[in-house]
Amino acid sequence: MNNYFVKRFLYLIPTLIGASILIFFLYSLIPGNFIDTDPNLTAERKAELYALYGFDQPTIIRYFIWMGNLFQGDLGYSLQFQRPVTEVLNNYIWSSFIVAFASLFLTWGIAMVIGVISATKQYSFFDSFITILVFGAMAIPSFFLGLIAIKFFAVDLGWFPAGGMTTSGADYTGWAYVKDIAEHMVLPVIVLTMLGIGGLTRYFRTNMLEVVKQDFVRTARAKGLKEKVVIYKHALRNALLPAITLFAFELPALFSGAIITEQIFNWPGIGAIYMQAFSVRDYPLLMGFTMFIAVLTVISNLIADILYGVADPRVRVK
């Protein structure tokens, strides 16, 4: 068992090295960089800046310098912000994280409940109604959904603020501050949840339909168990197994921000920073951030494997 994890852990190393090569060279081999974007610089000044940021070195050497820094926890230096990348990420990532986390929680909770009910009452009124609703929500683009939400809930009804993360000018502390942020979070979270819920509901419904057809569910009924026990104890546990993989993919998504939704609600998240970094070619920031997401993805895959072992005795390694 322990051997398996050590082995699995060792596999991470080549995967991450591969990812680092791809990420570094993709960004480094593109012609032009942050310094080139400024047309007012003299050739002399340019050469100075090149030397300052290490752009004068051969690309291969730069890769090893970058890697060396990575091992020391240094993701690079953001040219646009003139701060270490880790500091920039740390400043913006958590605001993206709280929105993504709240929406993840809601999406999975609601999708699971609706999916299971839809499956147990296949082709009923509830099932058809939810199907239409869910496809509707999936089909609407986020910018449209976001604007509609702002129009109704922020402008017409005035229930929630239209954008931002805190009320400007207000100087809340303690719980008042938390409440203020929570109020600002509501609309972006609703929009993100609506966007994500469709696919997941269908996924749970399909999984569940697949499982209730299985022989062991019939056996459970033949034992005279209550329908609730049959569905929630026997069927649901089996229907959740394939969702573990899907859940693992959510971990990097928690930190990667929602570019469009953050833009609409003027949310100071990492998605907006990411887009901005592209437009000014702040490659160190982009490389650092992409590498960070790559590490998260690889780790979440490992977590998925471990979770499978816990949840499914057939996968459990002896």
């Binding site: 299985q214 022989d215 062991f216 019939r218 056996t219 459970a220 009924r221 033949a222 034992k223 005279g224 168990l225 209550k226 329908e227 026997h234 546990r237 089996n238 197994l241 949840a311 499914d312 005795p313 057939r314």
Partner: peptide, 25 residues
């Protein structure tokens, strides 16, 4: 009917390999 099933009246099936829940002991 549920109270009779598995109690007074029970049944075994054709496919033992798939008739038991794979994730329960």
């Amino acid at each position: 009917m549920r109270r009779i099933r598995g109690n007074k009246l029970s049944m075994i099936f054709q496919e033992p390999m798939t008739s038991l829940n794979p994730v329960m002991t």
